[in-house]
Structures are given as C-alpha cells and as structure tokens.
Design a protein around this nucleic acid. Structure first.
Lengths: 329, 329
DNA sequence: CTGAAAGCGCTTACAG
DNA sequence: CTGAAAGCGCTTACAG
C-alpha cells in the first residue's frame, strides 16, 4: 500500500506538505505540482480510516430503514446514496427490521464519529440516546431535542384521499393502519382523513391494527378476518378504504377480490406511498404518492448542513400527489 | 469519547490487557471481569477506525449494484445486509448506475483495505483492476483470474421458458434482451432458450437491443417500435416472448395491450427475475424467479471464506423456478 | 510557506 | 499471563 510517506519521499517534501495539498491548503505552486505528480505516479489514495482517526471525520453517513423490501425505502436509499456520492460521501445501510437494538448500534456509531451523520426512519423509542448536537435527520418521526424531521405532507395526503372519496360519492369509509403510535408525521394521515370526511358529510371510521411496525403475515391475517366480518350477504359495509401504505392496500384489494367484492365498483381503495415496480409499471393501487426523490435530496442537504454546523430548518414537509391505480372511480 | 485508555485506568490494568479482552485472547479471569465491568460502566465501544488502521480489518464490506430501483437489486442488498449484520459486518452500498468509474472507486477501497471485501453486480470491464487474492464475489459476471461468481441457473431459466412455450403450443417465439455482452452467466439465458425451442420444433429468434445495461427510456422506445413492426393487420407475428428481465416484460405487456393484442390469448410473455411489490402482490408477469435470498446468503458465505482465506468454490449456480403471473396460458 | 513532531485509538510482538 | 513500547497512516499546531 502506498502511503503519504512514499509520496513525500518521491516528491522530495515532508508528509505535512503532502497532507496540505490533499486538504487543499496553501502550498507553493511548484511543490503542489510535484506532489500531485507523485500522487498520480504512485497511484496514492488517502486512507480514510487513518484520516478519520485523526480528523474525526469519515465522510460516511449511515441510513437506518426497516428494510429494503419495501420499495419506498429502497427508493429512498437509492436516491440518498446518489446525492451523497455526488458530494463525496459513502453510505452505510442498516436494515433495522424495526429492532431498537440495531438502531441504537448505529446511533452509537454516530456518537463516536465512526459515521459523520445519520438519516433514519425509526419507529422505536430511541429518544434518550440522541444528543441535540449530533447530525441526525429523522424521516416522519419527531424526537425531543432539536432533531430535524423531514416528511411528506401526511395531512395533505389524508385530505386528498378523503376528497377523492367524497367527490366520488362514498357514504361510509374507513382508515386501516398499523404501526407505531410515537409522535410523528404519519399519525396525521388518519386524522386529516377522518376530519375531512366528516366535514364533507361522509361517515369515517378508523381501524388500528396495533403498534407492530411491519406488515407481518399475522397482521395481514388480522386485516383479512376484519374484512371478512365487514361483509354481510355479499355486500361490504364500507365503500371507501384508505390504508396507511400501498402494501396494506394491496392486501385489501386481493382479499376483497377473493370475496367477490368489485373494486372500484363496490369499494374504492387508496393506499399511501405511490409505489410501483420500477418506473414503468402501472400503480398497483390508487395511492397518495410521496415525493421520494425530493425527500432524499432534502435529507442529505439537511444532514450536510448539520455536519458543517450550518443552520437548518427543523421541520420540512414536502407535498404529496394523488395517483390513479385503478382502485378508484 | 471514552477510549481504551480510560478503561485501562478504571480497571487498573494496561491498555494491552484491555485490548486482549476485547479480542477474546487469554486474560486472567479476575482481570477480565474487572475490565468488562469498566467497559460496561463507562459505556466504552471500540473505535473501528483505529482498529482498522492497525489491524487492517474494518468489518465492513461493500456491495456494488447498478441501482436500488430495480427490486431485484434492492432485495439482494436487503438480504446481503441481513446476513452480514448477523456476523458483525457493516455494509456500504454503491449504486454504480453502470458507471465504470464508480465501480473502480470501490474496487480501490477494497485494495486499500478500507473495506474487507466486495460483492458486485458489474457490467463494465473492470477485469484488469481485480487482483486474484482480493476478497471479491461477482454476481452473474465472469472475470479472469480466479474471481468467484455466484448466479442463478440462467441455462435452466432459458430452458424453463422454452418448455412453457412449447407445451402451450407456441409456433414462433422470440427472445428480447439488452445488456452487456461481457462473458457471464446471463448470456446463457438466450442460448438455452433458443436451443430448447429448436429441439422442440418451435421457431425461435433473438432480438438484441444492444449493450446498454439499463433499460432507459430510449431503449424502451426501441422495443416499442420493434413490437409495432411485428404487428401486421392487427395480428402479431410471434406468439411467445421471453425477455431478459421482468421490466422488459412489463414494457412488452403494456405495449401489446395498447396495440390491442391479447395477452396471454394471442401472445404469451415470460420475464426473468420473479419480482413483485413486496411479498404480497401478484407477479406482474409470468417469470423465471431467481432465488435472491439464497444468492445473498451464498455471496456472503463465499466472501467471508475469502476474507478468512479459506477455500471456496469458484462457480456457484443456484436453481430458478417458473412463476405464474397471468401472461402465460 | 514548510518541516519536525506529537498524537488520534487501537494492536501486537517482545520482555519479563 | 501482563505491561511497556512501537507503530498503523494520517492531521495539526508550532517553530522557523
């Protein structure tokens, strides 16, 4: 391995001088040129770990997401990596599987400067482990302290779904969800949905399937048996179903279809996220689409500002859109 | 930040002794206990970068994939991270966007021990940069030297698709692809498909849309105009279309449907990959499903063996299955 | 503007 | 079995 020492020897300067050209500090033009030549000739590249040890900066950032099976998270990570790479940062990914220990392990890495910062979609209660001055950007979830939070406009999402149902003549709708009840933006989805429906004269209920944050087989079965109970004599008691994610909506769609309920004829369904296979497939369900790319850009932007100790906005909310996926009229 | 020095002082031993308990070497029981207590009390955690600098091992591995938008890659990365985490490794992700420079940057990191090893889905010609002794596992692509390669059974995949078409009475089928022509497993898809068709008495053609590795808008348009040319008087000249990925198949499905061709009535379509939204959606097209999880496990397993300088198999091929997605009879 | 030197937090022969 | 010491490849005051 070629080190800074080899470069210094080859260029006939001290290691300090080499370090200075590496870090773009002032060096006499002539020396700079010689050092650059030697770097090129020897194929030298800085050892990030040695640099990180001394300078306490590693130019790597970690992202915590539940998993990459959910295309929303995969897309998010994809764009975060892309934006980060453009500014010279590397990305460590942590699939937490909603396990608090795994989240904590990465938060600790940030504390010890093993990563420069953290972007996290987190559903467990890790509040107390966060320090106010740590470069940390949360997605959807609020924390105590002054932790930054980026999210899509969940309130707008709930409202858009409600308005769609109202304008297409629904009479009795329901919001189906499961997930964390910790303070965060996503809780606003259901509230805005129900409120808007009420104001529009449409009856609206909420059905909460508990705190479990992933949609496990077990959760799915609960939803399925709930739907079975909603059907009397081949007719469904709700004519509009809004769900907390597209996956929920897909599960609902499958089950209703199996029970012979027509979608969107008898019942309309709207999911949340706006996911589809790549960018070419159709939307599998009508949905509220999150601006994933903009969210990624905003997260990285905010995180870099935090790392550089520049001022940032603490709450950033990005607009959503309704997308048609064949499950609405 | 609490260091090994603080722990040593607190426990009343030398830093060497602390290091030994950290690395599970022999330490007198009594000392070990005291050190462990101090570690716990002070909340000490090793600084990976300092350790990496000295020990030339960082317990991080990088994976290079074109992007995470394609659910096959997202799933692969998801499982790779999961398996890696279980054995104490961290994962750096690099979306190459099929850019050789980005791939090279990460190969260089591996060379300089900034990562302990590399898993790569690579389509550019980076052969010469690889050294035979570097822990490197390739997916689908062959390299010179003794580089390990893990892949799904592409030959079997081509054969399964052909057999499906034969058994459902197709007379004239085609294989549509684009992508790298570098030596690799994926080239076998088309060959096995065409050969099996021929043997079964079915006419089979190949249509190659060039070396571009991603399916860009431009590529899609080429495929679309090709399909338009295949239709005379409202009838399609091929009755079976096998494509090199599910995304291709989805594009084909959409276009045929738009042109009023019935799928699978008039034309059957089979993709490759076996992707769908999460694990709950239907397959959007009939497909040859790759065993993503097994591939991830095998890659990690092989890489760790390589890192630990244990013997490995150089070519590992895992079986595929046909999955029904409504575009076959 | 540059060099010599200290030090970042670890690991690892080497004595004892 | 343990401690003292060297050294991994860098950066950064500090003299000059």
């Amino acid at each position: 391995m070629v080190t800074i020492k080899d470069v210094a020897a080859d260029a006939g300067v001290s290691v300090g001088t080499v370090s200075k050209v590496l870090n773009n500090m002032y060096v006499k033009a002539d020396n700079r040129r010689r050092v650059e030549e030697s770097i090129h000739k020897l194929g030298y590249q800085v050892n990030t770990y040695a640099r990180g040890l001394k300078a306490q900066q590693t130019f790597t950032v970690a992202i915590i997401v539940p998993d990459l099976i959910n295309p929303f998270f995969a897309l998010l990570v994809n764009y975060v990596e892309q934006v980060l790479a453009a500014v010279g940062y590397k990305l460590l990914v942590c699939n937490s599987h909603c396990n608090a220990d795994r989240e904590l392990a990465y938060i600790n890495m940030a504390k010890q400067n093993k990563v420069d910062g953290l972007i996290a979609v987190t559903y467990s209660n890790t509040d107390e482990y966060l320090e106010a001055d740590m470069p940390f950007v949360s997605i959807d979830r609020h924390f105590k302290h002054q932790i930054c939070c980026v999210s899509s406009d969940n309130e707008m999402g709930g409202r858009l779904a409600a308005e769609k149902f109202i304008s297409t003549g629904c009479r009795n709708v329901i919001y189906i969800r499961n997930g964390s009840n910790l303070e965060g933006e996503t809780l606003k989805r259901g509230k805005a949905f129900v409120d808007t429906c009420m104001q529009g004269g449409v009856e609206a209920t909420r059905m909460d399937f508990g705190e479990e944050t992933t949609l496990s087989k077990q959760q799915m079965n609960k939803i399925i048996s709930f739907l079975e109970q909603c059907v009397k004599n081949g007719s469904m008691m709700y004519d509009g179903i809004f769900t907390s994610s597209d996956v929920h909506a897909i599960v609902v769609l499958k089950q209703l279809t199996e029970m012979g309920i027509r979608v969107p004829g008898d019942v309309q369904i709207i999911g949340y996220d706006g996911m589809r296979i790549l960018n070419v497939g159709d939307y599998p369900v009508s949905s509220i689409a999150q601006p994933v790319k903009e969210m990624a850009v905003t997260c990285v932007d905010t995180l870099i500002k935090l790392i550089e100790k520049k001022p940032v906005e603490r709450r950033i909310i990005l607009p959503v859109t309704f997308v048609e996926g064949g499950t609405t009229r």
